[in-house]
């Protein structure tokens, strides 16, 4: 399956990709974005792709366009509406979590995290689609 990983840290994109693979998720392609703006472009390009994205994983604290702004723009532009978005972030305060959920996030994982936590939150979302 294809997944979009959004994080301004290339290291963290690799770490998240490894955690998804350790969760037993068969990734055929990982599309990478360093911020929300790049992610929106990736979603627009995905509309023309024969194999659609099935999962979006996003950080929140990023320059240019943060993860919350990305969620809200994605919702407003109706981009990839059926694709589950899981936030993986250091930002664990309740107002931020609630804003993310209100903007369409289906899962929320705080850094630091274990592969087991990623599996527990992500796999059920993929099975439910």
């Amino acid at each position: 399956m294809r997944a979009l990983i959004i994080d301004d840290s290339a290291v963290m994109r690799k770490v998240v990709e490894r955690a998804l693979q350790q969760s037993g998720i068969d990734l055929t392609e990982v599309v990478q974005a360093a911020n929300g703006e790049e992610a929106l472009e990736a979603l627009k390009a995905d509309a023309a792709s024969p194999e659609k994205l099935r999962l979006i994983v996003s950080d929140i604290n990023m320059p240019v366009m943060d993860g919350l702004q990305f969620l809200e723009a994605r919702r407003d532009q109706n981009l990839a509406p059926g694709v589950p978005v899981v936030m993986i972030t250091t930002e664990g305060s309740e107002p931020v979590v609630l804003r993310a959920i209100a903007a369409g996030a289906k899962g929320y994982i705080c850094k630091p995290f274990t592969p087991e936590q990623v599996k527990a939150r992500v796999v059920p979302l993929l099975e439910a689609v």
Binding site: S9, N61, T89, T90, E91, G92, S93, C110, K111, P112
Partner: peptide, 8 residues
Amino acid sequence: NMIAGGWK
């Protein structure tokens, strides 16, 4: 980022 955010 993880240490600062986790500490906060």
